[in-house]
Every structure is written in structure tokens, then in C-alpha cells.
Amino acid sequence: MLFSLGKKKNPRMAQLKGVSLFTDLKLSQLRIVNSLLHERNYLANEIIFDEDDEGQALYIVISGKVRVERVGLDDKKNVEFGPGEFFGELALLEDAPRTSTARATEDSVLLALFRTEFLSLLELHSTIGSKISYALARDLAGKLRRSITSNLNQKAEA
């Protein structure tokens, strides 16, 4: 990678295009984002981050499966993420402890986007930063809506 000759077609671009966070980005913009991502390989059952860790990065699942669980929470409420999905997004928005533990349930390849790098993206490439921020807000709005609906359903059932 460090001493490669010439430009090769990067298969990562197609994978990134499939991530909802980056669907609005052009190929040239995806290249800039790709230069900021860190690829990590996890074995099945390996912990990615712990509850109460300092949250610093958002993780995108490229392959494999990741389970995000919380101590004392009903097993049904634990969420599993597959290829193209992302988790730990609150770390991009605030410097707060993680609210849950993430563990790979299969051998997984993940991409990490750090808050500091996201903030520099917002400053230097504001168009890319705003598109990602908008996608993130859209994702959080969807989660909020689902949560409200679920609460209302539970109250109705009660």
C-alpha cells in the first residue's frame, strides 16, 4: 500500500457507496472519506468496544456481524449489525462514554471513522461533512421515530 505504483481501482469504493451514511457522496468525495477510515479485522466473539469506554469512533461493518448489547437489557433489545450498516454513531457527535458493548459475532471487517477526523472533514471539506451529518441526522431521526412508536405500542398494549 505504501509503495504501490500507479492508480488501481479500489474495490472499497463500491462497498462504501452501499453504506447509507455515504449514499449522497460522489466518487471523488468518497475517496477523501476513504483516506480517513481505518480498517480493522475482528475475530468472532472479540470485543470492539466496552460500555463506558470513551467513545471516539463510528464503525461501519464491511463484512461479518456485530452485536451491540447492554448489561441488564432484554436480549430482544440487543441489536445486530451486518454489512453496510454502522454503529457507535453517537461518538461522532459527543465526547461521552459508550452506552453499550459491541462484540463481533462472526469474523468481521470494520471501518472506523474517528470524531477528530470527522471534525476536520467538516472544517476542510464542509460539503462532504454536511452530507454525512445530514445522513447521520436522518438515521437518528429514524431510530427516534421507531423508539417512539415502540413506546406508544407498549403503552397501548398495557
Partner: peptide, 24 residues
């Protein structure tokens, strides 16, 4: 940046997030 990422790759998963924060 390429060199930095090359170095970061060698950090074990458990220390990765904390190390990168300190690097920054």
C-alpha cells in the same frame, strides 16, 4: 497520512481507539 495509517494498522484492536485518540 498514509504512513500514519500504516503505523496505526500495527496497533492491536484492544488498544486501537485509545491509541488513536492519544495520537490525535
Amino acid at each position: 497520512n498514509v504512513f500514519k495509517r500504516f503505523i496505526v494498522q500495527s496497533i492491536p484492536n484492544a488498544y486501537f481507539e485509545k491509541s488513536l485518540l492519544l495520537f490525535h
